[in-house]
Design a protein around this nucleic acid. Structure first.
Lengths: 147, 147
DNA sequence: TGGCAAATATTGCAATTGCGATGATTGCAA
DNA sequence: TTGCAATCATCGCAATTGCAATATTTGCCA
């Protein structure tokens, strides 16, 4: 037997910090922007129209709305995204991917994808990967359900 | 069959954000400090002497040194920790737990521990928990090895 | 021994974040 | 229709972070 209690939580926290830091370091040393930019670019690229309302983007990326406003400010200043106010609901605004945004996303993925493989997936068998994904999705669903 | 590629990474990131945000929210609504404070208090409580050098604390908690300096500033201002400069190596300083710090750690655990159970462990069987922990520890070791 | 590189903790500064308003617009319901 | 609550995006401000110095002390080795 031994310890019945061995939560994965502490390891989860540590793994997150270490791997995210390592990924950010790789992006930085390649002269590329931070992870949050990738999330936005990727969310927009997945959107059929290549554009998303600010609050949709916030929901899709798990970033708060006020931070999304300012994140898009920076992405826009970098020419990776455009704000579009032509919109049925005149309160709202779209963020739309530019061609430069698509190029950047691809460049980031070259580094990011490799890093995920080398620092995360590399340590898991295919079955473990599948199992972990299933567990984490349950946790995500639970968290979303309890708001 | 099906998709050979189904990395757990995206779910990992999302689960981390959602669960950590939820835990922080619970701590805040209980009038308790943020998670980082718990990490420091807990690291100190585990230390046999109840005190640790700044850089040990930084390593134990995965917080950068400069941020640790200022985090301890705040903990000290709150009376949960004391800085001790009596030390063989006169460059260094200890952070030492105060009685109030022990009390606070215990109070935080009442909320934090429950939250971990309800938002994380609750969704895993004992076997899954063990398996996930093993996987994550491999990832942690890998990240530490590659510095 | 003397000098020099490494380590320790801290600080300054700019950038980012979190949280609570704010202004504008919409939808609903009386 | 009119009023009112809810929604959308943004902004202000204080707090936190990240990164690159800095000052001090130590250990090494020539």
């Amino acid at each position: 037997m031994g310890k019945a209690e061995a939560s994965a939580w502490p390891a989860f926290l540590t793994a997150h910090t270490l791997v995210v830091e390592a990924i950010e370091a790789r992006l930085a040393e390649a002269g590329l922007p931070e992870l949050a930019w990738y999330d936005v670019l990727w969310a927009l690229e997945r959107a059929p129209s290549g554009r998303l309302r600010m609050h949709e983007l916030a929901a899709a990326t798990v970033i708060s709305r006020s931070n999304m406003t300012r994140l898009i400010d920076r992405l826009e200043a970098a020419g990776l995204v455009t704000r579009v106010r032509e919109c049925d609901d005149r309160r709202g605004a779209y963020a739309a991917l530019t061609p430069a945004g698509r190029v950047m996303r691809r460049k980031m993925w070259q580094v990011y994808g490799r890093a995920i493989e080398e620092m995360f997936d590399r340590h898991l068998t295919r079955e473990e990967s599948t199992a972990m994904r299933a567990m984490l999705l349950r946790i995500v669903d639970g968290a979303r359900a309890s708001n």
